[in-house]
């Protein structure tokens, strides 16, 4: 067993300490060390986006980040999106638009969409599709997901009904 390294990071707003081997990915640390199983293991090659998390405001594939690289960083996962028992507008709109089926890709889509809306509260459909190009869904297809994100963006900007009237 290789020597474990002590890491201190901020995860969904709370200080978290953990020990990990340097070879372990952040995804592995989140799921198997810290018990945050929202980020999913899909391809392990950075193609599918199922493991998306936000580090210091930037969405990344946690399978391509080492756990030790989390030292001193601020990490957001899907577990941090709902607050005080209230779903995040993106989560609410994913439900309303039926923008998921099996659900494996959903945490990654939610996190990538949150990263987009944090930066761009009023994206065009084209911008939403571009921002989600690194997330693969093999069952729902993308149209419902894109509509859910556009609708959530409208709600978050203060409109009560959203662009698609759902």
């Amino acid at each position: 067993m290789a020597n474990k390294v002590y890491v201190e990071t901020t995860l969904n707003g709370e200080t978290v300490e953990f020990l990990c081997e340097p070879r372990q990915s952040l995804l592995e640390v989140l799921r198997d060390v810290l018990g945050f199983t929202g980020a999913k293991e899909g391809c392990l090659t950075g193609d599918c986006g199922a493991c998306s998390v936000i580090i210091d405001g930037r969405v990344v594939c946690s399978c391509l980040v080492l756990g030790v690289e989390a030292q001193g960083k601020t990490i957001e996962t899907v577990e941090g999106m709902a607050r005080d028992g209230q779903l995040h507008p993106l989560q609410q709109k994913f439900l309303e638009h039926a923008a998921l089926q099996c659900g494996i890709c959903t945490p990654g889509f939610l996190v990538a969409a949150k990263a987009l809306l944090d930066r761009n509260p009023n994206p065009t459909e084209h911008e939403v599709r571009y921002a989600l190009a690194g997330n693969l869904c093999r069952c729902t297809g993308y149209d419902k997901i894109v509509r859910a994100v556009l609708d959530a963006a409208a709600v978050m900007r203060g409109g009560t009904h959203g662009v698609t009237g759902a």
Partner: peptide
């Protein structure tokens, strides 16, 4: 190069 996720790294 790659997705938004990849360009961020």
């Amino acid at each position: 190069i790659g997705s938004v996720q990849i360009k961020n790294r």
